[in-house]
Nucleic acid binder design. Structure first.
Lengths: 167, 167
DNA sequence: GACCTTTTCTTGAAAGTTGAACTAGATAGA
DNA sequence: TCTATCTAGTTCAACTTTCAAGAAAAGGTC
């Protein structure tokens, strides 16, 4: 069965349905797993941890809010709330941006860095156990290729600059 | 650098880091995309839609709460809230389970089925455009294989019965 | 400069999620 | 039977996310 105009099939094939289900199951299970792991070991959800990692890798361990939101693929609103929470924990602080009075820099504090240093090994281990230990090198390569294609297709237009693997 | 005891590397390799980043980006972008698509076209988040789909495929379009939660990979608590909301929309209703007085059956209503029938084509199209149209048949096959491995590794012990692809 | 548009970031309320505590019914063993 | 334990499902409070609205500064254009 296809649409009259485009000829694109209306439904997924049996194989596609099966792949889609497996994709949904694997991704939700993995995200839940890492959320629980980090909640237990670092006291925050996975996405918050990811923000700290981003900051830790930025020059001077700081980033403009919008840039951080873009890199983490979340809305500015969500980031505002998240940074407020991380600020309460003492892991991040805000600083006014000198060159743009509207701007704010999120800065990873020493406590934040210390926390990251302590919890990183456990997190890496969890990721490794859940993903890389279970796949062959060929599968890892293939997974990377596929995920880059999917991400590129979903990226807002003109956002190539945010796809480091294309640089 | 490896742990003394197991010899497992503490950090991800460059390639693994790159694959991991791509995985996180692709999965969050895709989930956001489908959430917005379904919120706009069906008035509910992706996971709620998935619950209705599950029900629609079950015998008599109904399922025990726990079974539904297991299949959808969510907690019973989350499902309770979700069904309460879907009930308000008139898409699901609860019925006492005749054989177990503790139990409840979530039943897809005719309105719910109708809603699903209307919004399914748009959703399938979104999934197709985001994933299957962008991958070669070989990549689809490979993705399915990889996701099944990951899901199997994260499944709670003894839950093989919930992996339909292993039957 | 005055005006309009855009960008940056925050806020508040509504919706959704989590984990723990709880009720009620099933199950199994003495 | 009596009792302890387990299972099904809900509820509450704390937390997170979303969307719409808004304040403040920047950038253009006349």
């Amino acid at each position: 069965m296809t649409t009259a105009s485009t000829g694109a099939p209306l439904w997924l094939t049996d194989e596609e349905q099966c792949v889609w289900r497996a994709y949904l199951h694997a991704t939700t299970l993995l995200e839940d797993h890492l959320d629980r792991q980090l909640q237990a070991d670092a006291g925050m959800p996975h996405i918050y941890y990811g923000l700290l990692v981003q900051l830790s890798q930025a020059p001077r361990r700081q980033m403009r809010m919008t840039e951080l939101a873009k890199d983490a693929k979340i809305t500015r609103s969500r980031l505002s709330h998240a940074v407020a929470r991380l600020e309460k924990n003492g892991w991040v602080r805000r600083e006014d941006c000198p060159s743009d009075k509207r701007g704010q820099n999120a800065v990873l504090t020493d406590e934040g860095y210390e926390m990251l240093r302590r919890s990183a090994p456990g997190h890496v281990k969890a990721v490794r156990q859940a993903m890389f230990d279970r796949l062959t090198p060929e599968q890892v390569r293939s997974l990377g290729e596929i995920m880059k294609i999917l991400a590129a297709g979903l990226q807002p237009e003109g956002a190539d600059a945010d796809l480091p693997w294309l640089r």
